[in-house]
């Protein structure tokens, strides 16, 4: 399968679930910001969930089907359309050769993930196909996609092949079933669960109360490396300097002026700002869909609760993956 990018939009990159083997050499995790959407898009197609996908930021992108395509998309940055007709998300969609697919604004989230059956064929660099633009490697030539880029897919899995056989024809066609991501998400998506971080006690009482009750707004200086969070300044009791140590996507750092930075997929591997909290892994996909101006609240849970949520989410995804396979094998 093959497609050509006609309009890349604001920022479109090839990503998988990230790169973890070289963190000690300061190579960031990268990968899809909203890993849940990327995984669902792959799972419904019968792909390995780590297969490379395209991460689109907002709408305003276009691509052309150079061959018949079997695709799936997920995430709330945009809606895929063909001749102004919306394509349903979170399920396999067959698109005949030569169709042009346009992304239109969803006004809900910010990132959309396009998977094709087999996964996008880009070289694996340092154990991952994810693009890391700062250092210029991964994905397609280490850069954002641009007009004219041609992307190929790998060979199809047995399951993907069966889905394709079921849907292929002369028209756009899709399954009646889907995996709605909303079923996996909490009702209130602006309430982000966190576990207190190691320096949590460095902050004064007011800071802790503000952190867990006040709204924080995503600033305009937000990107794949991290989000600026605007709200009350968080002041410290302990003014010690923190020696640089490992940080992760989801770590919330507080700068000297008391403002917060939520680290995201392309964040540095180490940081020297005190950390007030760690966003729980299952809520990071919610953060990935936030736009500048969106307001969020933080709710504290225990590290044990976070771990249970993590394991339950993994179990659920494993079940969904098996359900798709049983359907076709």
């Amino acid at each position: 399968m093959q497609l050509t990018i006609i309009k890349p939009g604001l920022l479109s990159t090839v990503q998988d679930l990230g790169r973890r083997g070289y963190l000690s050499q300061a190579v960031p995790v990268s990968g899809a910001m909203d890993t849940l959407s990327a995984r669902i898009a792959n799972i419904v197609l019968g792909n390995d969930e780590n297969a490379a996908v395209i991460e689109f930021t907002y709408a305003d992108s276009e691509f052309k089907a150079d061959t018949d395509l079997l695709i799936a998309y997920a995430g709330e940055g945009a809606i895929l359309t063909i001749n102004d007709r919306k394509l349903p998300a979170e399920r396999p969609v067959f698109i005949p050769k030569d169709k042009v697919i346009k992304l239109i604004n969803s006004h809900i989230g910010s990132r959309t993930y396009l998977a094709i059956a087999g996964g996008f064929n880009v070289p694996e660099i340092l154990g991952s196909r994810s693009t890391f633009i700062t250092a210029g490697f991964g994905g397609l030539e280490g850069r954002a996609l641009k007009a004219g880029d041609v992307l190929l897919g790998y060979d199809l899995s047995v399951v993907s092949q069966k889905i394709l056989t079921q849907l292929s024809g002369n028209e756009v066609f899709f399954t009646s079933w889907s995996i709605p991501i909303t079923l996996l998400l909490p009702v209130d998506r602006k309430r982000i669960r966190v576990v207190p971080a190691h320096e949590f006690n460095w902050f004064n009482g007011q800071a802790v109360v503000d952190f867990l009750s006040e709204p924080f707004t995503i600033g305009t200086q937000s990107n794949r490396m991290g989000y600026q969070l605007q709200g009350p300044a968080l002041n410290r009791l302990v003014k010690d300097e923190l020696l640089s140590t490992a940080v992760m996507p989801g770590t919330i750092q507080v700068t000297g002026e008391g403002s917060m930075i939520l680290l995201m997929a392309d964040c540095q591997t180490t940081g020297g700002y005190p950390r007030i909290a760690q966003v729980v892994a299952v809520d990071l996909p919610l953060c990935a869909q936030l736009k500048p101006g969106d307001a969020i609240y933080f709710t504290e849970i225990t590290q044990h609760e976070a771990e249970i949520l993590y394991l339950e989410r993994e179990q659920e995804l494993r079940r969904l993956q098996m359900a798709v396979q049983y359907k076709f094998l």
Partner: peptide, 21 residues
């Protein structure tokens, strides 16, 4: 066990919770 990140005074150990559990 996945990987480890050394820093000035710390070693951060990354793992796969599904396997560890």
């Amino acid at each position: 066990f996945n990987t480890a990140i050394p820093a000035y005074t710390t070693l951060t150990v990354l793992f796969d919770p599904v396997v560890v559990s």
